[in-house]
Design a protein around this nucleic acid. Structure first.
Lengths: 173, 173
DNA sequence: TCGGACTATAGGACCACGCCTATATAGGAC
DNA sequence: GTCCTATATAGGCGTGGTCCTATAGTCCGA
């Protein structure tokens, strides 16, 4: 699991509460990582437990205190260890390809449906990434350009999927 | 979860034991689905429990009896239901993109390492799929061609990844 | 002859993760 | 006036999935 590391990475950019983190996940890194709110809070307390983060409690009126989490030196060390560690092999899993593999037992028009559904999903994904890219601009610093490249990666794959779908629809539709 | 459905799909192609299924997962559908041995056996007994599969016990000498699992009519119905159901949204998760996003805190050569590691992995993936495709041939029936298209999908994405990496290495290496 | 791979099953423990719920207040929409 | 959203936390429950272990015989190569 690298949920822990995703949180550490975000805490390294700036100190955050669990609530802030959930927003960061949804708004900033949603195109390649996501996290349930409950799991984010659990990960945070695990990080504090392990000495990788520290809590600063800021009381508020009328609502629970903000628990601002700061990354520690140990946390930064662990983050760097992860960043430079060789990628652990992640098994591929695609529900769509599984359906496609077993689709021969379906009538032809059902296969066509499967493909057109996939096309709709891929198109939406492409447009979402496009909009994000347009909102972010080109990026001036090296850091910004590296972060933006996660978007261009997603776009490249969405493009590849759409192209592949076109040849598929020509052959099977 | 569609582990259940992946197993049903394979059982629909031919009756199998848990052991056979594990081999099918590793050899046939590994490029888009994988399964732990323990989980396969648990899934099988769940399917039998739910009436979606039936067991035929074939005793053997010197080793445990083969428990050959046959898909039932109810199983085929469930398989069809899944195949035609709209795709449930699967959140994207990429450890590599996460690392890339947080890589700005690393020295430049470490970022280059990250990219070249990824290049190696993508190249291997591409070659593996290529070899599989070469071993399978072009496919004569519609069913064969549909199954083979899961390979061409993988190849398209591997190609896209390699192309993207090339522009990345030109910009950041 | 000894160790390892193959055939075949299955239980136990643990973990990551997702859904649902609870609590408490403020402010805006309808 | 009521309902929804935002702010902020956290526990509980269930499940899908991985790893490790146990059993037990055969067959093959070093």
């Amino acid at each position: 699991m690298s949920m822990k590391h995703a949180v550490l990475g975000l805490l390294d950019l700036s100190p955050l509460t669990g609530y802030d983190l959930k927003k960061s996940f949804d708004e900033t890194v949603n195109h390649f990582w996501s996290g349930d709110q409950a799991q984010i809070y659990r990960t945070l307390s695990a990080l504090v437990n392990a000495g990788l983060a520290e809590v600063e409690v800021v009381p508020q009126e009328g609502r629970p205190a903000r628990k601002i989490h700061h990354i520690t030196d140990a946390g930064r060390a662990e983050l760097d260890r992860w960043l430079t560690a060789p990628a652990e092999p992640a098994p591929e899993r695609s529900e769509f390809l599984a359906k496609l593999f077993f689709s021969p037992r379906l009538p032809d028009d059902a296969v066509a449906d499967l493909l057109s559904q996939r096309r709709a999903a891929a198109t939406t994904a492409w447009e979402t990434l496009r909009a994000l890219e347009a909102a972010e601009g080109t990026g001036t610093t090296r850091a910004e350009r590296l972060r933006l490249s996660t978007l261009s990666n997603g776009l490249a794959h969405a493009r590849a999927e759409l192209d592949w779908l076109e040849t598929m629809e020509r052959e099977f539709a």
